[in-house]
Simulated scan of single mutants.
Amino acid sequence: MEETKQQKFVRIAEPRVTRACKAVSLLGNLAGSNYEYTEEQVDAMFGAVQKELDNARAAFSQKDKPKKFTF
């Protein structure tokens, strides 16, 4: 029996989400007393992560929308 696109999505997405969550969790370890950081560094770190999350979410939103024509 051939794998459906839905099944393939779930098969691939589950380990990727798990790895992404683990990576975000590891960022929290940087808050420990073994490190020194500024609020600006923390803001930049989480800003970069949030930007990538926003880009990934947007890719799903644009799936069925026609792309705007630009030069």
Score class of each variant (00 low, 15 high):
Q7M: 04
Y35G: 03
E52W: 04
F71V: 13
A13R: 06
R19D: 09
I12A: 09
F46N: 02
R11W: 03
L27H: 04
F71E: 13
Q50P: 00
F71D: 10
A13N: 01
T18G: 01
K65S: 05
R16Y: 06
K68D: 08
A20T: 09
A44N: 12
G32H: 08
D64M: 07
L27M: 15
D64P: 00
A31C: 07
R11D: 02
S33G: 06
F71T: 07
T18W: 03
V10A: 09
R11N: 01
G28K: 14
K68N: 08
F69A: 15
A58W: 07
K51G: 00
V42D: 05
G28F: 09
A20Q: 07
K8G: 03
G47E: 06
S61A: 13
V17W: 04
A59R: 14
R57E: 10
E3P: 01
M45Q: 04
V24T: 10
P15E: 15
E39S: 11
A48V: 09
T38Q: 07
K22W: 08
T18D: 09
V49Q: 08
A58E: 12
S33F: 09
K8A: 10
F71M: 12
L30I: 05
V49F: 12
Q6P: 04
T4S: 02
Y35A: 04
G28L: 15
A59K: 14
E3H: 02
L26P: 00
R16G: 04
D64N: 08
Y35S: 05
A44H: 04
I12F: 03
S61L: 15
Q62Y: 10
S33T: 12
Y37R: 04
V10G: 00
K65G: 01
F69L: 15
C21G: 00
F71K: 12
V17D: 01
A23E: 08
Q41F: 09
A59G: 02
F60G: 05
P15H: 08
L26R: 11
A59M: 14
K51S: 08
E40M: 09
A56D: 04
M45D: 00
V49W: 06
E2F: 03
G32C: 04
Q62N: 13
N55D: 14
L27G: 01
E52S: 05
E39W: 02
S61V: 03
K68A: 12
A59F: 05
D64E: 12
Y35V: 02
A58G: 00
E14M: 13
F71A: 10
K67M: 12
K68M: 04
P15Q: 10
M45H: 02
D64V: 06
F9N: 06
N34A: 12
A44R: 11
Q6S: 07
R19Y: 05
L26A: 10
D43Y: 06
M1E: 03
A56W: 07
M45P: 00
E52M: 12
C21R: 14
C21L: 15
T70H: 04
N34L: 11
I12T: 11
D43M: 13
A23S: 09
T70D: 07
R57A: 11
M1T: 07
E14I: 13
